[in-house]
């Protein structure tokens, strides 16, 4: 489903540049639930952005569903995003002046789905998240967990193949966190690939596979239980 070959990326600085990803090789197959772990600055968010076609890369190759993603125009990237990918963010990133229903329906708006159809599907999706009674609420009227459920509903509305979640529980308490994680597990159970960036070991432990990133390279990649063990008590070496 997702294949990265020797991805390198650096951010330009005033003098020289800062390498963030230094040759990432990664294969993720359809239906996997993967955690990407790493300390801040390890490049995990950048990796997610590259995977999500939100950011480009300097060298290497990226195949999404067998299609080469290098050198995409903004328009093409937008199309693949809307076709294959759904995003869930730490800070939810709901549009503040739109209701839960409108937020969920927005991706369909950009897919030019007729209004009535959008409303129907958005309401249905909110129902799956147990949020249909909050459809007309603005994000400011929702709790953190509810916001993330709306965000997940929004990510799922376009029936994506892959959900990319950037610290989806970072802003939530532990109870709500595990709720959100079980929602994501259900999503995964329906056959959608889920990739979660996190620095919390117990979140990673709820995934099938954990990839540890350090200083722009993958240092460990394996079944969640095995990998998490050495850094179970924290966010890894904070250098």
């Amino acid at each position: 489903m997702l294949a990265l070959r020797g991805i390198e990326k650096s951010y330009p600085l005033a003098v020289g540049s800062l390498p963030v990803l230094k040759g990432i090789d990664l294969n993720i197959t359809q239906g996997e639930m993967v955690a990407i772990m790493g300390s801040s600055g390890s490049g995990k968010s950048t990796l997610l952005n590259v995977l999500g076609l939100l950011d480009g890369f300097d060298s290497g190759g990226y195949d999404l569903d067998g299609v080469d993603m290098s050198g995409l125009s903004e328009k093409q990237a937008a199309r693949y995003r809307s076709q294959f990918l759904g995003f869930v963010f730490q800070s939810f990133n709901l549009i503040s002046f739109k209701t839960a229903l409108e937020n969920v329906a927005l991706p369909l708006f950009y897919q030019k789905v007729p209004r009535r159809e959008r409303q129907r599907r958005a309401l249905e999706m909110l129902g799956k998240m147990g949020m249909d009674d909050r459809a007309d609420h603005l994000p400011s009227e929702l709790s953190g967990g509810q916001k993330q459920r709306v965000a997940i509903a929004r990510a799922l509305i376009t029936s994506p193949r892959v959900i990319l979640a950037d610290e989806p529980t970072g802003a939530l308490d532990s109870t709500t966190s595990s709720e959100v994680m079980s929602v994501l597990r259900e999503v995964n159970a329906s056959g959608i690939t889920v990739i979660i960036v996190t620095h919390e070991a117990d979140i990673a432990a709820k995934c099938d596979r954990t990839i540890r990133l350090h200083d722009g390279v993958i240092i460990e990649d394996g079944r969640s239980g095995e990998v998490v063990e050495p850094t179970a008590n924290g966010a890894g070496s904070s250098d």
């Binding site: 999500g52 937008a78 199309r79 995003r81 809307s82 076709q83 990133n93 950009y110």
Partner: peptide
């Protein structure tokens, strides 16, 4: 900026 970023991540093309 953020709102526009969200819209982009949700599939809004530059033309939109």
């Amino acid at each position: 900026t953020k709102e526009l970023g969200i819209r982009r991540s949700l599939g809004a093309t530059p033309v939109r």
